[in-house]
Structures are given as structure tokens and as C-alpha cells.
Simulated assay, not measured.
Amino acid sequence: MLKNKKIILITIIAVILLTLTGCSNKEEKIPQADDSAFLMDTLVQMRAHGENAEKAVEASMERIRELENLMSKTIETSDIYKLNNSPEMKIDINQESMKVLKKAVNYAEQTDGNFDPTIGALVELWGIGTKNPEVPSESEIKRALSNTGYQYLKLYDSSAEITRPGVKVDLGGIAKGFAAEEVKKVVENYGIEHAFVNLGGNVLVIGDKVDGTPWKIGIQDPRKDRGNVMAIVDAVDKTIVTSGNYERYFEKDGKIYHHIIDPKTGYPAENNLLSVSIISENSFDADALSTAVYVMGLKKGMKFIENMEDVNVMIITEDLDVYISSGLKDIVEIKDSDFNLIEGENFAD
């Protein structure tokens, strides 16, 4: 049975919570603009409050389209498509694409390859999220693994090169985070102090709500369908990005295969985790970190985040234990008694 969830509103259902919240008199007086579109292979939703709200939302959506055209692996005019289809050649790369490539390689190095932007051959092989996913043979996985490794991606001042034919770059685990940060710049340029954008579960809130209270971001219950919240995070000028094994997957012979591939084994990561949520001030970093920590697993992932400044994590295990890093104690509220909250900073020692 295939369960394809390309429109990933299951991970974080901030929009539902925000929509159901009633407007105060102050909110009713301030102009508000909303929009949604299918961009970067997901549903993007945005809201802004302020005199220039409509212009800010329109410009933000256009900015995301621009970045999609630069970094999509399927648009033939994009930097990434050209790079993937011209191995052993230096390809001129737009400055913004280069920022994402450099950040991706940096995190590959920091995480010992648990996050790897050259995982494209494995992603294509499994086809999870497409109409025809399949469990590859061991020989196919071995071949795709030989074509995976960030050491085969060379970055220069304004160009990049794939040094091994068959290696393919896939920025699906980081490009949306960069797009969210670009939206933040657009919104601030229009003088907007209250806004949110949801790029398929990558949620960024700007400022607080118009009534002065924090945005309420719901964390999806990974056992249930969309709309079921297991925790709420109070957020002001924060981003929340979640990677979960329930977002995109398929079932074969009674076994579930999810889309978070371990770059070292070639198989979906198996580490007793249901989801990892990164809470920080920067979506660019959080996007890559949510994937990396999921692949790392509980102990290594929690320790990795505790050693970072201004970055926090919530990890949900298959046993429904919820581990939170030290910075989340006062802003996370567990809403379902099935889950057991554990403060994870001591666990990481």
C-alpha cells in the first residue's frame, strides 16, 4: 500500500492552530494577507499582518518560485539539474545556489555524513513519494551507495563540479530552510512585524501574534492523521522543522519504508525514532539538522544539539518517550498523556 504525502502538512500543523484562533479587536483592525501555492514540491502557506501585508506575501511567494527555479533537481534550467547532468565538468552556479551547496557540505562534514546533499542516487532508487516506490535489491543499493558521498562534490568560487559520474545532488533536505530565511528578509523589508510561513512542515514565525501573544505551533502526533496534536510550542521569532518517518512512506510485505535515507547504509534510517523537531532562530540550519539528527539517532543526536548554541530539539521515540533539550523546558506543552516527557540534556551526557 502506497501512502504518498508530498504535501507535508502532517509534520507541523501550525496553520490549523492559527486559523482556529479567534481574532481580537486589534487583529481585526490590522490588514492581513494570506496565500498558498504548491512550490518546492510541497504546499506553501503564508500569512502576514501589516499595512504592506499583501505586497509582502506576494513578493515572498515570488521569491520562493525564484529559488525553486534555481535549486530544483527536475527543472532543466536549474543549477542543480545542470550540475547533476554534467559530471566532471565545472558548472557556473548562481550565488544563492552556492550558499545552499556550501551550507549543505558544511553540515555533511559536521555530522560525519549523516546529512549528505549527494544522496540523489539513493533517493531516485527508492522512489519514495513517487507513484512507483520499490524496495531495491542489495546490488542496486550497493551501486547507489558508490555514487553517494559529498567528497565527490567540489565547490569553487562561482562554480561546482561532480567528480564522479552517477553522483547526484539533492537539496530537498535544506533548500526549503534557505527559502524560509529569504522570506524573512522580504517580510522585514516591507516592515511586517507579524507573519508566518509554512513550507510543507518547515514553519517560520516572525515576531509574535498581533495580540502580543506567542504563536502556537502544533507538533503532529506521529501515530495519527493530520490534525492530531501531541504538543504545542510557544514561538516568537522562531522556526520549527520536523523530520518524521510518517511523512512519506510505503509498505511492502508488512514492512514500512520511510523517506529518510541513511547515507551510510542506503536504507531508511532505523533507530527507534518517530520524529525529530528542531526549534531555533534559523530555518536554514534547522532544515538540515532535523534530517541529520534523525539519522544519528537519540543519543548521538541529542548530544550533538546540546553542544550547539541557540538550537533545541524534541525527539519522539517509538516508545512514545519525548526527549527535549534544555532550552525547551518552558515553551513546550505536551497535550497527550500517552507521551512521556523526558528532559534530555542529562541523557546526552
Rank of each mutant, 00 (worst) to 15 (best):
V105N: 11
E247F: 04
G254S: 09
K264C: 01
H194F: 05
E270A: 14
T265R: 00
N25I: 07
E161Y: 06
T239A: 14
D253H: 09
K209G: 02
E68L: 03
V100I: 15
F38N: 14
F196P: 00
S337E: 15
L18E: 09
P117D: 11
L101T: 00
N189Y: 08
P214S: 09
Y152K: 05
F339G: 01
I260K: 10
L204R: 13
I128Q: 08
E54F: 07
E134Q: 12
S60F: 01
P165Q: 07
N271T: 03
E309K: 09
P87G: 06
E247L: 12
T148N: 09
S283Q: 08
V44P: 00
S72F: 01
S243M: 05
F38E: 13
R63N: 11
I232W: 00
Y81D: 11
P133H: 11
S137K: 13
N25Y: 07
I342W: 07
E309V: 08
F115L: 14
E68T: 03
T111D: 03
D319E: 15
D338K: 14
G301V: 00
V15N: 00
R164I: 12
L43H: 12
Q220H: 12
Y150P: 05
T242L: 03
M71V: 03
V293N: 09
K176E: 07
R226P: 04
F304Y: 15
D336A: 02
L155W: 02
Y190K: 01
I141G: 04
G166Y: 04
D225V: 06
A235M: 11
L289R: 08
L153G: 01
E181N: 12
I305Y: 04
A53N: 03
Y81E: 14
D330P: 11
G244V: 01
L273K: 07
V293C: 08
R164P: 03
G172R: 01
S158Q: 09
N132F: 11
G254K: 14
A348Q: 09
K264F: 06
E181R: 06
V186N: 05
T74G: 01
G172N: 02
V205D: 07
R226N: 13
E318I: 07
V205L: 13
I278N: 14
I315S: 13
E309S: 10
K29Q: 15
